[in-house]
Design a protein around this nucleic acid. Structure first.
Length: 827
RNA sequence: GCCGCGGUGGCGGAAUUGGCAGACGCGCAGGACUUAAAAUCCUGUCCCGCUAAAACGGGGUGCGGGUUCGACUCCCGCCCGCGGCACCA
């Protein structure tokens, strides 16, 4: 052979990337049959200043391989990329440096784009979107208006999570361990006027539909827990001799006052020895007796001051005070003392509980501390229980429970529920942990909430809330702002921004008409972006009905597991809203979801600037080329697992590509023999099957075996070589394109059909079957496929190695699994 | 505490879902080429015993039991690691 070249990816990777772009070979097909479509989506990244990291590369490579494979299979593929561009980091950086967030973000996007292109990923850049562009966020604002129209938006004064450092409120989902997800500052509770999306209206469906989708179990579980559905009963406890003071002082009504509690264990009702209200509960002030006014007030004060963290379970001691009031047990009429305690949360259930210290650990602790009665009413079905020691929280059999005595938990529940319902003391109910989604943020770098306040349409004290008319969208972010956080949105001080006319009455002027200055949580932006990708340039709609019908839902969605509850839940919510609004006729956006695991540093720790152990994909591409980086990240292990980087392992993959490169010089135009045909046919079948399962690591192992089988001396038949290049093309697009061109095949390998395989050729003609005696494998036999038991026994008898184990008269039983194993069982 | 996932050589990981455990890669050891190194190639590499080397025998998938002709795989009870939720009544 003449002029053997060394493998040097730098020599051809850029060249092909350029050609692919010029010839636009990954262009999204426009007119297609929805049955043959495939929408393959990555979670679009936040374009951070740090640039792309190896974790991104892992997910993107996997979807790239999948997309390329589906294209070769004849599917019409949508595989887009875009930017989740709004968010705090850019704004925080702006505060520090004075550089406008837009400038920072656009620069980061440029870097990301360049990096992604250098990896040879097959995105169609015509479909690119970015959430910070007015032509994107006008539709984010449109969604706000849509939800508003549907009655799914409201504004309310509410205790919110406030981050003193970021100077903004946070969604519950953004509070981690009582701290701000972003900066780690302890979050405090604050009463503020805020905007909410009514996601709780969909709680049941969000839970129910999890059954329909192919998602990792852990992620579904995460959503289930977050939604936190529990079935129980609301029970009324009457406050005797209570008189409710109404606002109207002259009138004193004398109707009965009740405390409503929610419980999932109504069967323990006879064990309720006291009631507890959340300190913020509206009834507290009404029922507290004069004698206890002061201590109750003081306790309420203290609670208000506590941070979320202090109030959480991490706080060891339970605290509370007595209100002086009593409530009547609905069945036996006993007077139960009513306490307040901050272990009861206003935000769950009814904000009040019946305490059953014998059967609830929290109540038990509290009762112990304050000397309240502990009355066991359930005993275990088997064995004893020391009720002095701790609460018995499992199901069992009722005792000390009047007409429930002797009943098992489930029966007791039914019995007491019908008893209570009949008498109007109780009602079955379902409660959720899920709360409405707080979407307003007092920050600049987000989509402005499209609302105008008008004092003429309303009053000075209560200005009317007027949604911005659709035709006036987008409400653009003004530039005349100061980024310093003040606790209010920087937009508040923009003159340009508030220069607005009331769309209803035409009034204007400072203090008369002004815009809402809060922006939306960036999770709003990302809750619908996958719709926009189907029709990114549409100026009339967020996406046309046809485009959505063509591409949605997403067939494969890949991204990090950290979005288990936030982004994934919100996106599902938006999809259901769109369905109810009549825009779409499906209710789940992502049919199949897979997560990529964390890529750890070489030292097994998380990659971090702090440790100086960060692997930058750019450097790796420079050293080894894009194909090596792609292939190595796929070879490391299962996509979903966390796994450490290994530069040595990466070199191994590079070595493999070198071998592939050298193999070109062994290619001959000769006919392949049967063995070679079987090998390549098997490979084709194996690769396709495992791409679909995202088992990229084992595929690469097979590629290696294939190459090794040819390396020392053997020549490669041209027809085998072609098919090998084709099946490897999705994994290593550059080298395969180069080698494809070198055998004179037309551009581009990535526009070829996936090679077919002959099902008859994907098994070996000869097969090894294991021969075992008493379950112990003693050897193998190479036999033709499909041999019968008798034939195999004959072979064993005559086999020099195996015959010595075969003592005919001792064999009791012979187990034979065709083409797999034969097992002789003796004494 | 609850829920989910996992535990296989020195390391990353394979095992057609109950049928030869350790594919492939890394690392390591020995050898070839070289003045030398790098690169490349070849051979070996789960542990123990017997071996000059094999052949051969025994053990082995976190631990202890069980089901089965046969268990990394299924069942029961533990231990450990990772992730999520966490006073949610």
């Amino acid at each position: 052979m003449v002029n053997r070249e060394e493998f040097n990816p730098a020599k051809f990777e850029k060249k092909w990337q350029k050609r692919w772009e010029e010839e636009d070979i990954y262009k999204t097909p426009s007119k297609i049959d929805p049955k043959e479509k495939f929408y393959c989506l990555d979670m679009f990244p936040y374009p951070s200043g740090a640039g792309l990291h190896v974790g991104h590369v892992e997910g993107y490579t996997a979807t790239d391989i999948y997309s390329r494979y589906m294209r070769m299979q004849g599917f019409q593929v949508l595989h887009p990329m875009g930017w989740d561009a709004f968010g705090l980091p850019a704004e925080n950086y702006a505060i520090k440096t004075g550089i406008h967030p837009k400038e920072i973000t656009d620069k980061a996007i440029k870097t990301f784009t360049h990096q992604i292109k250098s990896l040879g990923l097959s995105y169609d850049w015509q479909q690119e979107i970015s959430t910070h562009q007015p032509d994107y966020y006008r539709w984010t604002q449109w969604f706000f208006l849509l939800l508003y129209k549907m009655g799914l938006v409201y504004k309310k004064k509410a205790p919110v999570n406030w981050c003193p450092s970021c100077q903004t409120v946070l969604a519950n989902e953004q509070v981690v361990d009582g701290k701000c997800e972003r900066c780690g500052t302890e979050v405090v509770q604050k009463e503020m006027d805020q905007w909410f999306f009514k996601i709780t209206a969909y709680a049941d469906e969000l839970l129910e539909d999890l059954k329909k989708i192919d998602w990792p179990e852990s992620t579904k579980e995460g959503q289930k827990n977050w939604i936190g559905r529990s079935e129980g009963v609301v029970i009324k406890f009457q406050i005797p001799n209570s008189k409710e003071q109404t606002n109207n002082k002259s009138q004193t009504t004398n109707h009965k006052l009740y405390i409503e509690v929610f419980t999932t264990r109504p069967d323990t009702l006879f064990g309720a020895t006291y009631l507890v209200l959340a300190p913020e509960h509206p009834l507290v002030n009404k029922i507290t007796t004069p004698k206890y006014q002061e201590t109750v007030k003081k306790y309420q004060e203290e609670t208000r001051k506590k941070t979320a963290l202090q109030r959480s379970a991490l706080e060891k001691e339970k605290t509370g005070v007595f209100t002086g009031a009593y409530a009547l047990h609905p069945v036996n009429g006993r007077k139960l003392p009513v306490w307040i305690a901050d272990y009861v949360l206003m935000t769950y259930g009814t904000g009040a509980i019946m305490a059953v210290p014998a059967h609830d650990e929290r109540d038990f602790q509290f009762a112990r501390k304050y000397g309240l009665e502990i009355q066991p009413v359930i005993k275990p079905e088997k064995g004893e229980w020391d009720f002095e020691e701790r609460a018995f929280t499992e199901e069992g059999v009722n005792i000390n429970s009047g007409f429930l005595d002797g009943l098992k938990t489930r029966a007791a529940k039914e019995r007491i529920i019908s008893w209570l319902e009949k008498r109007g003391f109780g009602k079955k109910d379902v409660r959720y942990k899920l709360r409405d989604w707080l979407i307003s943020r007092q920050r600049y770098w987000g989509a402005p909430i499209p609302v105008i306040y008008c004092t003429k349409c309303g009053t000075k004290e209560k200005p009317a809330i007027i949604p911005v008319p659709e035709k006036d969208l987008p409400v653009e972010l003004p530039d005349d702002v100061d980024f310093k956080p003040t606790g209010e949105s920087p937009l508040k001080y923009s003159k340009k921004f508030h220069d607005v006319v009331c769309p209803v009455c035409g009034a204007k002027g400072k203090g008369v008409v002004w815009r809402e200055s809060d922006t939306m949580d960036t999770f709003v932006d990302s809750s619908w972006y996958f719709f926009r990708f189907t029709d990114p340039k549409n100026e009339k709609e967020f996406a046309s009905k046809e485009a959505i019908k063509t591409w949605m839902p997403v067939d494969l969605y890949v991204g990090g597991a950290e979005h288990t509850v936030l982004h994934l839940l919100y996106s599902r919510f938006f999809t259901k809203v769109l369905r109810d609004a009549g825009y779409i006729d499906f209710s789940e956006p992502f049919l199949k979801l897979r997560h990529q695991g964390l890529i750890l540093a070489e030292d097994g720790r998380k990659m971090s600037k702090r440790w100086g152990n960060v692997i930058n994909p750019d450097d790796e591409v420079k050293k080894f080329g894009a194909d090596t980086v792609r292939l190595y990240e796929m070879f490391m292990g299962p996509i979903k697992d966390a796994k450490p980087w290994s530069t040595a392992g990466e070199k191994g993959v590079y070595r493999f590509l070198k071998k592939v490169w050298r193999l070109q010089y062994k290619v001959r135009e000769e006919k392949s023999n049967e063995r070679e045909e079987r090998q390549i046919n098997k490979l084709i079948a194996y690769v396709g099957e495992n791409i679909e399962r995202l088992n990229m690591n084992v595929i690469i192992a097979r590629f290696m075996e294939f190459v090794n089988s040819y390396t020392p001396k053997k020549r490669v038949p041209l027809e085998v070589w072609k098919r090998f290049l084709l099946v490897m093309a999705p994994f290593a697009p550059h080298i395969t394109e180069e080698l494809w061109a070198r055998i004179g095949m037309p551009f581009s390998i990535h526009q070829q059909a996936w090679p077919e395989y002959n099902p008859e050729l994907i098994t070996n003609k000869k097969i090894k079957i294991a021969v075992a005696f008493n379950g112990k494998t003693r050897g193998t036999l190479e036999v033709n496929l499909g041999l019968t038991k008798e034939e195999v026994i004959d072979k064993v008898k005559t086999n020099p190695k195996l015959s010595k184990y075969y003592l005919e008269n001792k064999i009791k039983k012979t187990i034979f699994v065709k083409d797999k194993i034969i097992n002789f069982v003796g004494v």
